[in-house]
Design a protein around this nucleic acid. Structure first.
Lengths: 358, 358
DNA sequence: CTTTCAAATGTGCACGCACACAATTAATTT
DNA sequence: AAATTAATTGTGTGCGTGCACATTTGAAAG
């Protein structure tokens, strides 16, 4: 029907010519800003249906010379090495987009204080950002926050923890139940029953931490389905601040039948490792989370056998990129971006440390 | 010294004003095209040293409306599922950059024919591309190819296999020796000696395949260093076309002491798996490479215990991106991009399949 | 002192899009 | 029929950079 130049891309100008209108009209149709007659609308949409128009995103960003402010709500990075990694990802995204008019403001809250989360959330809304990225680790406190964001029409992206009720622009993280299954698979590998496996939730308020319980659920379900031998699974939910903490851990270490430990938190992994080492029980299989400096030490010395990498840095980085793509490039982001459940060992850990952002 | 507007970025125009010259002169200095007086050159460089000018890449690509042709030299994707994955990565990059005037031409060569590689290489140079990405799987044939590229001043990016003599723009791939070590670590996990481990090189001409021997070297070195029990390691280098292939494999399967098999090629992994299954020896630990459809089947049914993911798709994709960044955005690429040695199991394989390009 | 010519410098347009504003047309009122 | 107003459509400018071309400068030659 129409002769098109090969190689060259279709521009708004071309559409205008084909539809017999001006670029302004096409522009109004594309962004449905109204102020267009039915006739012109029909003409343009007709052309649009026949050709495959892909707007030049490069030109678009240059043309609309907008500035965007993004708020990042994360736990205080100075209080926890895991969230320090997250912080790094945010900083990276920040510097990356800075020259294109994107400003990322961090709003840290206290990991151990639910109220602080709520306070920060309303503070963020007050600052009227164009978008929000957040790690909604507190279930109950998050739901009203989402409602607040929605009421103010601010798009938000979740990472780390998914919450069913939230209708975010995107979720970036892992399938936590599946993550538990990976842990289970690694803990029974080459083991011969019967024996005991321990699940440890160290350092967080488990009552409300959906993500930790999800991991445990996956862990248990895989063991029940797949282990031929008889294994006992025990769960400990303890805070290191508790007066009985040392005592409880010591008792666990001395359990004769103990064959493996699965720790659901990254920080807790190193804690469990130190106890195993102290009690000369390095042979007991230990599986935990994330490549933190502390964990690295124990992984290298063989106390920790496997780490499951949650990649907090990349999660945060990608969260912001998603938001920028949405705001600046008007790109449709995929609803969920599930990260691979990376298995880290003594032998492949360096290949992960060496590679940039993966 | 100079008052700068916060938030706003420095433009060429700003530099010109500060240096007391026109934008044209600044442009000439930036791209050192000459035709600039010593005085002006000094003035501009002075300003450049004081401020941190980051060119707006968005505007740059829009302004210089250039077209780039990239040639991709890879083994024929129709002959091997591994290289089919590579092909997918190239196609993805192709569609991604198409609208910005980047054209990627594929030049497939015959995986089993070294001469075809040489022929294709000179054919590529004839086509005068702006850049080349290639998988130099044949050592001896690659070196003269690199010299040819250099002589014609065409930048090239390597992936999959690194070659010391090549001075590429970038190398994208894995540390193969370390990859073998990961294989070894996974094969002894939970095993109790004594016993036999087999290293299988199936399907390629091992004489010249540096990459396979690298893996074996790593495998052996880790076992020698780390296993307390006595293990015997045997190596088989066989082609499935060989008349004695079935016989040799059958004999291996019946080896009583066999505790594990490490296969160095992705295609060979499925072959080994089928033999294990046929002989009812699924309990023998099997470790191989890559998430190919065939391998997936055996991984799911438990015949394959671990796969090490080389991520051919992403390697190819990133190779092209590196080249585009160099050509179009004039960005300095990092010399080497070592991919993590991803460990794939029954439980985490879906998390890898689900995620897009990571 | 004018002419010639090359080196140095400045100016203007294009890239494709967004957006503000100007111009046109049609409908309604006086 | 002229004037007012609203609805629609078209035009122009800017975003920051690259590049072609025009202009200026200064020195050498006539």
């Amino acid at each position: 029907m129409f002769t098109m130049q090969v190689g060259k891309n279709i521009r708004i100008k071309d559409i205008a010519k084909l539809a017999g209108v001006s670029v302004g009209t096409v522009d109004r149709v594309l962004h449905n800003r109204g102020r267009v007659s039915d006739y012109a609308l029909r003409k343009v949409t007709e052309v649009m249906n026949q050709i495959d128009y892909k707007p030049n995103l490069i030109a678009r960003t240059l043309g609309s010379n907008k500035n965007y402010r993004i708020a990042a709500i994360i736990p205080d990075p100075t209080l926890d090495p895991y969230w320090a990694q997250t912080n790094l990802g945010i900083i990276q995204a920040q510097t990356e987009w800075a020259q294109y008019g994107v400003i990322v403001d961090q709003f840290p809250f206290d990991l151990y204080n639910k109220d602080s989360f709520q306070q920060i959330a309303s503070k963020v809304v007050e600052s009227q950002p164009d978008g929000i990225v957040l790690a909604p680790i507190f279930y109950h406190e998050s739901v009203p926050a989402f409602e607040l964001f929605q009421a103010h029409n601010i798009p938000y992206v979740l990472f780390n923890t998914n919450i069913r009720e939230a209708k975010p622009l995107a979720f970036i993280g892992q399938d936590l139940s599946q993550s538990g299954k990976v842990g289970a698979q690694l803990i029974i590998l080459g083991q011969h029953g019967p024996g005991t496996f321990a699940v440890l939730h160290i350092d967080e308020d488990v009552q409300d931490s959906v993500h930790l319980l999800e991991k445990e659920r996956g862990f248990r379900s895989h063991l029940e389905e797949n282990s031929k031998a008889q294994y006992e699974i025990v769960t400990f939910s303890i805070s290191p601040n508790s007066p009985t903490f040392n005592q409880q851990m010591a008792k666990l270490m001395e359990t004769e039948s103990l064959k493996g430990i699965f720790v659901s938190t990254s920080k807790g992994t190193a804690v469990a490792a130190s106890f195993l080492q102290q009690h000369g029980k390095s042979e007991i299989r230990l599986i935990g989370y994330d490549i933190l400096t502390e964990n690295l030490k124990y992984l290298r010395s063989g106390v920790i056998d496997f780490l499951i990498n949650q990649n907090p840095k990349r999660q945060a980085h990608l969260g912001i990129s998603h938001l920028v793509n949405h705001l600046m490039f008007k790109k449709n982001t995929p609803g969920t971006d599930l990260f691979p459940l990376e298995i880290i060992t003594q032998q492949n850990v360096d290949s992960y440390l060496g590679s940039g952002i993966h």
